[in-house]
Design a protein around this nucleic acid. Structure first.
Length: 202
DNA sequence: CTACCGATTGACT
DNA sequence: GTCAATCGGTAGA
């Protein structure tokens, strides 16, 4: 079974559409340690200059430069001493992105358990920094091209067979500005979605 | 060089 | 529900 990467066109669109459609896709990570993967169950859209919470809102700098580049690349940044992973969306210069917030672990679970230092499946990748630790995603992968289909990429789940999924939307977690905007998307009733119980409901 | 920040997490009541 | 540790990046002196 192979896992072809989503094409550039998937990412080169409105980040809200990309965030919604990333739900149910498989995030793949291949490193020297082996393969690990998980189903994306939660994502948030960040809308560039039209979104005060977006890192690119105040213009380009060294840290956010990847967001200003082409869609389909990884934007990795650090918050509270932890790494978080985004997919760059829209056109070059737009600087919008989708934050991948939680995974349901699929392959390489012992590898993820080792990296996280715990066993509990539900805690391995429930949260943006936890999933980066579980998949060994660091600044070294900032700017990485997801469409290459190696190291780090996103694929369609062949077992998903297009079955409709219930998607809920809510306020984004943790942001201090534009708090009221409903730009967080997650699979309803999925145990691997982050946040308190109240944040797992619409 | 120091000071400050944060799209978080984990431990706690 | 609350709260503080976390530390690399960045800005500014």
């Amino acid at each position: 079974m192979d896992w072809p990467p989503l094409p550039r066109e998937f990412y080169a669109r409105d980040p809200i559409a990309v965030a919604r459609e990333l739900l149910g896709k498989i995030l793949m990570r291949e490193s020297a340690d082996g393969l690990a993967s998980g189903r994306i169950v939660e994502a948030e859209a960040y809308l560039s200059s039209r979104d005060p919470a977006c890192h690119a809102n105040r213009g380009r700098n060294r840290k956010n430069a990847t967001m200003f580049g082409p869609a389909g690349h990884a934007y990795v940044y650090m918050i509270h001493a932890r790494w978080c992973l985004n997919a760059v969306t829209e056109d070059v210069g737009c600087a919008s992105a989708v934050l991948i917030r939680a995974l349901e672990p699929l392959a390489g679970i012992p590898l993820m358990q080792g990296r996280r230092g715990l066993e509990e499946l539900r805690d391995l990748a429930r949260g943006p920094a936890r999933l980066c630790q579980a998949l060994a995603v660091t600044k070294a992968l900032d700017g990485h091209d997801f469409t290459l289909g190696r190291d780090l990429w996103i694929a369609t789940d062949p077992s998903a067979n297009g079955s409709p999924r219930r998607i809920h939307r809510s306020r984004r977690i943790g942001v201090t500005s534009a708090h009221s905007r409903l730009l967080r998307f997650f699979l309803a009733d999925n145990a691997f979605v982050s946040g308190k119980r109240s944040a797992r409901r619409r």
